[in-house]
């Protein structure tokens, strides 16, 4: 069983929901990335989504744009991010690592070469933001063949025929985008998400995570009641930006612990 499947199976048994923090690899600096991953796990993260920075993050709001710029400025490349994953794996063989980024750095490396490198680095899943299912058949097949889960976004506007298409290709979990707009946008309509997730479950048989617009323990809690996993990104990246280099590990630990506690509260 894959690490992602094992993680969700264990959580189901404990009647708990997954907490999936996202941050951009290489931000605030190269040396802090792997310690941040470990700190997030220690604070209660179940899966780590590691952002691969791209020069043109079209689907991201200002917070993650700035974070990508810092990461690129620090010299982060797709190769570096794979190395971070491999280093994390040396001391953690249990927590899944999912890479999230844009198509071009992957195509630049070559899809096959990337799929092999991802498996060797101990990466468990890959989400390519600008690869809708139609354009990702090749990469999804290669990833799947190498035991790495292709992970897909589903939007509020995704029609049933597409949901079926995504369900066929997706492994691990699907990522439901709870808002129209870019990452980091405000306000969340929990009732709307509840209805949509109920519809999704008819076709999607793997766990459903919800992300975009989750800002605090309260919104995380609300989402955890209806989804299998809560993804929190921009809020953490904002905290990384605000914290000094010395305080970033502590501040992120506190924030992730708070959200974990809110999700787990009986």
């Amino acid at each position: 069983m894959s690490r992602i499947d094992a993680t969700f199976a264990a959580l189901r048994e404990q009647k708990r929901k997954a907490l999936i923090p996202f941050f951009t690899a290489g931000d605030p600096d190269l040396a802090t990335t792997v310690p941040l991953m470990h700190a997030m796990v220690a604070a209660g993260a179940d899966i780590i989504e590691l952002g691969v920075p791209f020069s043109d993050p079209m689907a991201d709001g200002p917070t993650i744009q700035r974070s990508s710029e810092r990461a690129l400025h620090n010299g982060t490349t797709l190769r570096t991010v794979l190395d971070f994953a491999a280093e994390f794996r040396k001391t953690n063989d249990r927590t899944p690592v999912v890479l999230m980024g844009y198509a071009n750095p992957i195509e630049s490396m070559g899809c096959e070469k990337f799929a092999v490198a991802a498996r060797e680095a101990g990466v468990d899943g890959v989400l390519v933001v600008d690869y809708p299912p139609e354009e990702s058949v090749l990469l999804a097949g290669l990833l799947d063949a190498h035991g790495v889960a292709p992970i897909f976004l589903i939007a509020p506007t995704t029609v049933d025929a597409r949901i079926e298409q995504i369900a066929r290709l997706a492994r691990g979990y699907v990522y439901y985008v709870s808002l129209r707009g870019v990452t980091g946008a405000a306000t969340l309509n929990v009732e709307e998400i509840r209805q949509k997730i109920a519809q999704l479950r008819v076709r999607v048989k793997i766990p459903i995570g919800v992300g975009f617009g989750i800002r605090d323990g309260k919104t995380a809690r609300a989402v955890s009641e209806i989804a299998d996993a809560v993804v929190i990104g921009s809020r953490l990246v904002e905290e990384i930006e605000k914290s000094g280099h010395g305080r970033v590990l502590d501040n992120i630990s506190v924030l992730v612990k708070d959200i974990r506690a809110a999700i787990d509260r009986q």
Partner: peptide
Amino acid sequence: RGHFGPYGGVFVAETLIEA
């Protein structure tokens, strides 16, 4: 689907597909 040989296509996040 907008392909000119290997070029073109639709490479956007799922959120833009409906539009």
